[in-house]
Design a protein around this nucleic acid. Structure first.
Lengths: 169, 169
DNA sequence: CTTGGAAAGTCAACAAGGCTGACATAAAAT
DNA sequence: ATTTTATGTCAGCCTTGTTGACTTTCCAAG
């Protein structure tokens, strides 16, 4: 059924589509994602925050002034779930929620100085590992890495990702 | 502080280590991981199982006869957490726990036929997406993808990963 | 201007899946 | 004989996700 299941009839160029190769990619994703989150998790533990707070902070930093609805779409969680996280960040003075300029129902989200400080700490830790991996693998590998990840996303996520791509000025 | 923070003094070959580039890699990981888990999650929902069950099933399939301690190290969770998952899988007849041959304290874990059926369904869904991404990106990109992910792992996870690499015969 | 719908917030309840700590048993190792 | 290892289990806690119901505020279309 699955094509590329062996050296059946495809030609050598399809050997990378073998079930075995694909399985290894799956395991690589699993183990790598653990490393990916490990450093920020370490920083967060002990504070009252968790991975969910990190994600909110990341995307507010990335798209300052974004709305709640926007953030909901990006994070892919429910309003209630996000609200719990956002509530504590606002109450603790890491995030500021300003009434929208054109549409007053909206709330524009920004990091405060304190919030930006935490963002920097988290981001620096995560980027250090990422940069080390990039350096070890080299520019061509990095290009491939990004290509495969992008192809792996759901179409809607891919749009979200690409709209951040050449990002916020 | 961070090197490669701009076109400061590195030379063009280091442009891929820019903070901006690294941030995009971080976001790619985030969005791609969602896609990565989406299909198995869909299959699992409605059954009494979740992502944790999937992971246990995956690695038992991958290393038939593995012990509990072994699986604990691979999954990186506590004994109590794994036990809850394993308990239901054994009770539901998806996993068989056999007393160890040489060391009778150990339990060797195997999938039953029923367990293997579920493994196949989950794996096929996940591999389909992965294979599509591989095909879209091409063999060279896939090689880069694997290189970067491997470099991103914690050393211990990398050993685990590599010991599965050219896998169980 | 009224009314429908969108954006945001909140309460309550629940589930999955992590965690710690404390114990218990069987078997291996010393 | 004693200690250590592998496994299992009870109890309780936390984070972060979910549904469902309901409110307030405000924009926009009729």
């Amino acid at each position: 059924m699955a094509e590329g299941s062996a050296g059946s009839g495809g030609g050598e160029t399809l050997l990378f589509l073998t079930d075995e190769q694909v399985r290894k990619g799956i395991e690589a994703m699993f183990f790598a994602y653990r490393g990916f989150t490990a450093d920020p998790d370490r920083i967060l533990e002990g504070m009252d925050y968790g991975r969910a707070h990190h994600r909110a902070i990341h995307f507010i930093h990335r798209s300052p002034g974004t709305t709640v609805t926007n953030l909901l779409a990006t994070l892919g969680v429910t309003k209630q779930s996000l609200n719990r996280v956002l509530r504590t960040l606002i109450d603790d003075g890491l995030v500021q929620s300003r009434i929208g300029g054109s549409d007053k129902r909206e709330r524009n989200l920004h990091l405060t100085v304190k919030g930006a400080d935490l963002e920097r700490a988290l981001s620096e830790a995560q980027r250090a590992r990422m940069r080390a991996a990039y350096r070890a693998a080299g520019p061509q590998a990095v290009a491939g890495f990004r290509q495969v990840l992008e192809a792996m996303m759901d179409p809607e996520m891919r749009r979200q990702y690409q709209s951040l791509k050449e990002g916020s000025p």
